[in-house]
């Protein structure tokens, strides 16, 4: 299937790069079916994938390939039809709605494409939101580090409407980082940003992985964005069709074009 030298076997539990043996997130025999009978759509077709701790993974693929579904199911926003998904040691497929909520609060960070911040809260309040929902005291040291890193110290008391799009996304990244989750899921985090601002955000996410040892899984259809990752997983028709390590824009484009022809 793969024409690339540095592409590896499909699926698997292999660990890569800086990672330890323990995967931050994992999907086992993941199947997701929407609808029934004639309108049945198989969004995920027995997918096995593992995201190692401290790794930056990009999930790519054409529209309808199942990349968003995979992310949603692994993040506990949606449930698999069969198979299981795991965050750390926890099989989230077995969790109740309430337990899932607590898991999202403590172990998962989110960065969405457009709507990331609560408009009635200031930047700092948005950053602390997951911790405050759990009525937990934020780790001040980490918080300081994160705020310093995103460079928003003078904007902390501003409301989202008073921030630029890039600044808003930086706040979103900071929020995801501040609770030091097992894994951060990012859904097209730069989709609404111009390329310069987008690059800033991606740089920052890259640094989060490299400097803080954060695990990030990012869904994107932008090869440039994906090139910031350690590893790119390509999906088509609910299957993982390719995987690239240490990707470049070129290798990604090649993989994508072969995936769409497959």
């Amino acid at each position: 299937m793969s024409t690339q030298a540095n592409s590896s076997a499909i699926g698997s539990n292999q660990t890569i790069g800086l990672a330890t043996d323990r995967p931050a997130a994992q999907a086992v025999d993941a199947v997701k079916v929407y609808g029934a009978g004639e309108t049945e759509v198989v969004a995920l077709n027995n997918v096995n994938i593992s995201f190692a701790t401290g790794q930056f993974t990009a999930i790519m693929g054409p529209s309808g390939s199942g990349k968003s579904t995979l992310m949603h199911c692994m993040a506990g926003l949606d449930r698999l039809s069969s198979g299981s998904s795991h965050i750390g040691d926890i099989n989230i497929s077995e969790l109740s709605e309430k337990e899932l909520t607590l898991l999202r609060r403590t172990s998962v960070g989110f960065i969405f494409q457009g709507f990331n911040l609560i408009p009635t809260l200031t930047a700092i309040e948005n950053i602390k939101l997951p911790m405050q929902l759990g009525r937990q005291k934020p780790n001040d040291e980490l918080l300081n580090e994160v705020i310093e890193a995103v460079g928003l110290r003078d904007r902390l008391d501003h409301r989202p409407t008073e921030l630029s799009g890039g600044q808003q996304q930086r706040v979103a990244v900071a929020r995801a980082l501040a609770s030091a989750p097992d894994v951060i899921f990012a859904d097209e985090p730069t989709g609404n940003l111009d390329s310069t601002t987008g690059a800033e955000i991606l740089d920052f996410m890259r640094r989060a992985v490299t400097e803080f040892g954060q695990t990030i899984v990012m869904v994107t259809h932008d090869p440039v964005a994906a090139s910031y990752a350690d590893r790119v997983v390509v999906l088509a028709d609910g299957n993982i069709v390719d995987e690239i390590h240490e990707p470049t824009t070129e290798t990604i484009l090649t993989a994508l074009s072969s995936a769409s022809q497959a």
Partner: peptide
């Protein structure tokens, strides 16, 4: 709707 969805995603419980 979107806002409540976001709150739920980052860990607001139904009760909250």
């Amino acid at each position: 709707t979107k806002e409540i969805g976001l709150l739920r995603a980052v860990g607001m419980s139904r009760r909250q």
